[in-house]
């Protein structure tokens, strides 16, 4: 679960990249975050991976309070999320198998775990037959599949993908989105940052739109609001978010 409460981020240059964000993503959801360049999507991504700390507000991801998390706990937190980038970020001096195994090696997984997990991930992403290929021998779509396999191999609870189809053609884009949908169906929360409107329309998932650092629309909360309004019509979504974050903090 991801909970953001009144989150703002101002860079040292004085630029206020995100302003007063309130957001809740339940376990197992598939969410798109969209917006134009400079809308704050990438800053939000880096806040969620704890590359950045918010200037104000609090962020809770997978029961880790990212505001008060200790430095030595950050690696443990990051193992609970998997990240995928637009430029794939594969290691070009290692083959497909080694790229996926790398994610396991750096967290100290045993050779047996690696031998069992890596082929499973390659099968899931449809790359079993290409395990010996080097990244530069693969198409863009295949390279992104390797990146997804690497993000998944440590069994994260959330996959965060920053423009995962930005460098792909339409066919590959649809294949990657289908793969992410399959992963989501298996129980992993998937958050995709994108500016592709056609993809949003075809996928019919929750869409959070950002503009100038603020959330300007959230189809998920709109649906909830409608539901809540029909039932009681009283508590706002941010009010319920605040309640949840307080309850979760107490439980931690």
């Amino acid at each position: 679960m991801i909970i953001l409460e009144n989150v703002s981020k101002t860079y040292q240059t004085g630029v206020r990249a995100v302003k007063d964000l309130n957001l809740m993503v339940e376990d197992g959801e598939f969410v798109f975050i969209t917006g134009k360049s400079g809308s704050g999507k990438s800053t939000l991504f880096r806040l969620l991976t704890r590359e950045l700390k918010p200037t104000e507000g609090s962020i809770m991801v997978n029961d880790f309070d990212l505001d008060s998390i200790r430095r030595r706990q950050i690696p443990r937190f990051r193992r609970s999320i998997g990240v995928v980038f637009q430029d794939f970020r594969l290691l070009n001096d290692r083959n497909v198998y080694e790229n996926v195994a790398f994610a396991q090696r750096v967290i100290g997984a045993s050779p047996n775990e690696i031998k069992s997990n890596v082929p499973r991930m390659l099968q899931l992403t449809g790359l079993s037959h290409k395990y010996k290929n080097m990244p530069y021998e693969l198409s863009g779509g295949e390279q992104q599949r390797v990146a997804i396999a690497r993000a998944l191999v440590n069994q994260p609870r959330i996959i965060l993908a920053d423009e995962p189809t930005g460098n792909l053609d339409e066919t590959n884009t649809m294949e990657i989105m289908k793969l992410l949908e399959d992963i989501n169906r298996m129980g992993t929360t998937v958050i995709v940052i994108t500016h592709s409107m056609s993809m949003l329309e075809s996928m019919k998932k929750r869409v959070i739109s950002m503009e100038k650092g603020r959330i300007v629309s959230d189809t998920g909360s709109e649906r909830k609001n409608k539901g809540a309004g029909a039932a009681a019509g009283t508590e706002s979504t941010s009010g319920s978010r605040a309640g949840v974050i307080r309850r979760r903090r107490r439980s931690i």
Partner: peptide, 16 residues
Amino acid sequence: KRENEIMRLIGATDFM
């Protein structure tokens, strides 16, 4: 640099 960035985001410890 690239490898270290990936390691960091995957959850490798400072020691590693």
